[in-house]
């Protein structure tokens, strides 16, 4: 991995808070580097010393098994020291403020914080209080940049390009950080995006981001090269924004029948965890068109790349 050292300090921003206005050049660097790390994951010994001596805190104010595991694995593969902090075990419940928690953790001499938080802007907010590198692992309904990057890597792997690709994002766009980050990232990389879902779950103002909107799944499937199927998050819906599971499945669920109506072989993605039989049928998820498990592996590779590019180079000769 010697050649990777050249990539240090190549990213414009110190933190990874979101993909809005994130430079295309840096997204390309992250994805290219992720491919390199993916080869590490295929070796018998899946570990490199790139982040030896670097301490990273995983600060999770909200449950997220898979994002957390993915980050932890990425950190271990890079030989970083990691500490996990989750809201359930934290002092937050005892009334300590967000700021105090952040500053307490940082005063223990750490290099980076990976944070998941239920509030939009929480990661931006964290940068006001600490000097460490901040990586947003999802802030409420705002952004989830590492998910979008792994999605883009997976698309790139499949199609060999992002420019000109047509990607439909299907589901509850209103409550989705995955959708926003994907919109920002994909449009930056020259892909086209269509949002498809129930009309009350697609904010009207998102059209101003240069995306197409359709309320008809057949229209979206007809148009798309790939479809990114979002989880219907019932827990986010205080007012039962979707009348019933069966109505949703009927209108927007990705079934083999709906896919078979279109000649083109559409690539099917899902950020997980899936509700099989709701937004996606089991046979589709397990079928040839799905790249859902590739996404999971690419998640580890791209998070390795992000961590390395943002936190690397500290231990060796103080270059950074």
């Amino acid at each position: 991995m010697r050649n990777l050292n050249k990539k240090l300090n190549m990213l414009k921003n110190k933190h990874l808070l979101g993909l809005k206005e994130y430079p295309a050049k840096d997204l390309k660097t992250i994805i290219d580097t992720a491919y390199n790390f993916k080869t590490v994951l295929d070796r018998p010994i899946k570990k490199v010393p790139s982040l030896q001596g670097v301490t990273i805190v995983n600060l999770f104010f909200e449950n997220s098994t898979r994002t957390k595991i993915s980050f932890e694995l990425a950190q271990k593969r890079l030989s970083a020291d990691t500490v996990n902090f989750s809201a359930s075990s934290s002092s937050l419940k005892k009334g300590e403020s967000f700021k105090d928690t952040a500053q307490n953790i940082e005063s223990m001499k750490i290099d980076a914080v990976v944070m998941r938080h239920p509030t939009p802007g929480a990661a931006n907010h964290l940068t006001n209080f600490i000097d460490s590198v901040v990586i947003n692992a999802g802030d409420g309904t705002h952004e989830h940049p590492t998910q979008a990057i792994l999605d883009m890597m997976s698309l790139h792997e499949k199609f060999g390009k992002l420019k000109g690709l047509k990607v439909a994002i299907v589901g509850d766009i209103l409550h989705s950080r995955v959708a926003l980050s994907n919109i920002y990232g994909l449009t930056t990389m020259g892909a086209e995006v269509m949002l498809c879902g129930p009309s009350n779950l697609i904010p009207v103002h998102l059209k101003e981001l240069g995306v197409k909107v359709s309320y008809k799944i057949n229209e979206a499937l007809d148009w798309a090269d790939a479809v990114n199927v979002l989880r219907i998050q019932r827990e986010r819906m205080g007012k039962s924004l979707v009348p019933s599971i069966r109505e949703y499945r009927e209108m927007f669920g990705i079934t083999s029948k709906k896919l078979s109506l279109h000649k083109k072989e559409i690539v099917v993605m899902h950020p997980g965890p899936m509700n099989r039989g709701v937004e996606i049928d089991g046979d589709v998820a397990d079928g040839d068109q799905a790249i859902i498990l590739d996404q999971v592996l690419n998640g580890v590779a791209s998070r390795m790349s992000i961590l390395f590019l943002l936190c690397g180079g500290k231990n060796s000769d103080g270059e950074r």
Partner: peptide, 10 residues
């Protein structure tokens, strides 16, 4: 409620 709130997820 508008362009900015939609983009910030607020």
């Amino acid at each position: 409620d508008g362009v900015v709130s939609s983009q910030l997820g607020l």
